[in-house]
């Protein structure tokens, strides 16, 4: 999880700097939102080891779970 968060920070700094140079404010906002979502998913996945997988959740909706 630490490596993932470090990757997110490094990539964000690199990309946001380029977008700032081009004055792309809207792009920065959407990019930041996407990175926050990705970070949240990553923290959830690595912090909660007993979670059900995405497939299991969807398959249970259609009665194909165990």
């Amino acid at each position: 999880m630490v490596y993932l968060l470090i990757s997110i920070v490094i990539l964000s700094l690199w990309d946001v700097k380029k977008m700032k140079d081009k004055n792309q404010k809207k792009d920065i906002v959407i990019y930041s939102l996407l990175m926050v979502m990705v970070g949240t998913l990553g923290v959830y996945y690595f912090s909660v080891p007993d979670h059900d997988s995405f497939s299991k959740i969807l398959l249970s909706f259609i009665g194909q779970g165990e």
């Binding site: 690199w14 979502m37 990705v38």
Partner: peptide
């Protein structure tokens, strides 16, 4: 948005 290049980072991490 104005360009796509920067969006590759969050998509690949996702």
């Amino acid at each position: 948005l104005s360009e796509k290049k920067s969006l590759v980072s969050p998509v690949t991490l996702f």
